[in-house]
Design a protein around this nucleic acid. Structure first.
Length: 386
DNA sequence: TCCTCTAACACTTTTGAATCGC
DNA sequence: AGCGATTCAAAAGTGTTAGAGG
């Protein structure tokens, strides 16, 4: 049995990769802003709560961009990619493989609320995906990212030139991912170390840390919450961004105190495009034909930003032995510094052709490559069964 | 019996409208 | 009248845990 949480001892360490939280591909450079926090979680084994009504990520995805053309409009998106084709269970303080992965739920893409915006806007400050929510509800109507519990994912960021969300599909993509952002989706925390880390860093958890309410239980409180509060909570089920004007682009981590200043300096458009997507007629929306993506001849490149040695071990045992996972992590394109290559495990044989394709400057998008059967389940654009 | 998921809970933080002073 | 600062209530979000359900 392979244990994820024991990755440090199980892993044959590759050569130390270059310490880099950012990576350049072509002219565009993307940096994971709160990388240290991610690393802290990654060293333990990040878990993200998913709920029926949607739960934010913590740490949340926050990135910065450079190398964009200041006056060209860009759209920035993120989606979640399964790491392996397994599901897991938490047993005896460790993650274990619990069988084959469930069929993938409808894949959705979260578009940054500022999109589209000129390159100067994106480069002016970091981009926060704080408001992105994860759900396990395959019938979700709010545009949240749908994931399976006990499965592992990593967020994948896309940058493309586009003047409107409608024209996104026609542009070339640049795609980025960060190994330290890999997480296990759970409906309840499994690893108490993760719980502690979250409570230490997440201000919203203070109520449980300081309030001394851990002893509360339904048994002790037969009297339910007041109707008014309950009603308020029920109202909260309305689509995010519809009750209140969203204003995102907050601080990349709790202690930075950047949120307020950023918001003051950069009032946002207040448009949550995940909500926007919901308002579109699916028959006309760009989200409407995900499975036909492979017919479009846009180029798309994905780069996996090298992880630093501190958390590299998390590319643990489960990934190497006979795993084809890195066939899913598109290989670095030819313009990638060769020094970064060691951080990538040996390519799966099936990935070789893909690599060769990239040598020509085009990333073989999943819809195009030999894993099309798998990837066809993960369209770039959100769609659902609306 | 075991495992996973859901809902309720107390509390903090965030948000935005209302108010005030200049 | 317009603007910025402040206040405050409501909304949103958090992890925990008992119980339900497969």
């Amino acid at each position: 049995m392979q244990h994820i949480s024991d990755f440090k001892s199980n892993l044959t360490m590759p050569r130390p990769p270059p310490a880099a939280d950012s990576y350049q591909q072509g002219s565009i450079k993307m940096t994971l802003e709160n990388a240290d926090l991610w690393k802290s979680f990654h060293s333990i084994g990040t878990e993200m709560i998913i709920t029926k009504h949607g739960r934010r990520m913590f740490p949340h995805c926050s990135i910065s961009l450079s190398g964009l053309q200041p006056y060209a409009n860009y759209v920035v998106m993120v989606d979640m990619v399964p790491v392996e084709s397994f599901k897991y269970k938490w047993k005896k303080e460790q993650w274990e493989v619990a069988g084959k992965a469930e069929p993938q739920p409808p894949c959705r893409t979260y578009m940054h609320p500022d999109s589209p915006a000129p390159g100067s806007h994106w480069m002016k400050q970091s981009l926060s995906f704080l408001k992105m929510k994860l759900t396990n509800n395959t019938l979700d109507q709010h545009g949240h990212i749908i994931l399976h519990s006990m499965h592992r994912y990593y967020p994948r960021f896309h940058v493309t030139q586009a003047d409107s969300p409608y024209t996104v599909r026609w542009g070339p993509f640049q795609t980025f991912s960060f190994p330290e952002t890999t997480f296990t989706a759970v409906t309840a925390y499994q690893n108490p170390k993760i719980t502690k880390l979250k409570i230490d860093h997440n201000p919203f958890a203070k109520g449980f840390r300081e309030g001394g309410t851990h002893s509360h239980s339904k048994r002790c409180r037969p009297n339910r919450s007041p109707p008014a509060k309950r009603a308020a909570l029920d109202r909260s089920e309305s689509p995010p961004g519809l009750q209140r004007m969203p204003s995102t682009s907050q601080s990349v981590q709790a202690g930075k105190n950047q949120a307020s200043t950023q918001q003051q300096q950069q009032p946002l458009k207040g448009v949550d495009l995940s909500a926007w997507a919901l308002e579109q007629d699916p028959s006309e929306s760009l989200h409407a034909e995900p499975l036909e993506q492979h017919e479009y001849d846009y180029s798309c490149e994905e780069q996996m930003v090298p992880a630093s040695v501190a958390y590299q071990p998390y590319r643990y045992d489960l990934r190497y032995p006979g795993s084809v996972d890195y066939a899913r992590f598109p290989l670095p394109s030819s313009d990638v510094d060769a020094a970064h290559a060691p951080v990538h495990p040996p390519p799966h044989p099936l990935a070789t052709a893909e690599h060769n394709t990239q040598q020509h400057g085009y990333y073989h998008h999943p819809y195009h490559n030999s894993h099309a059967a798998d990837w066809s389940q993960y369209p770039l654009f959100s769609y659902s069964i609306w």
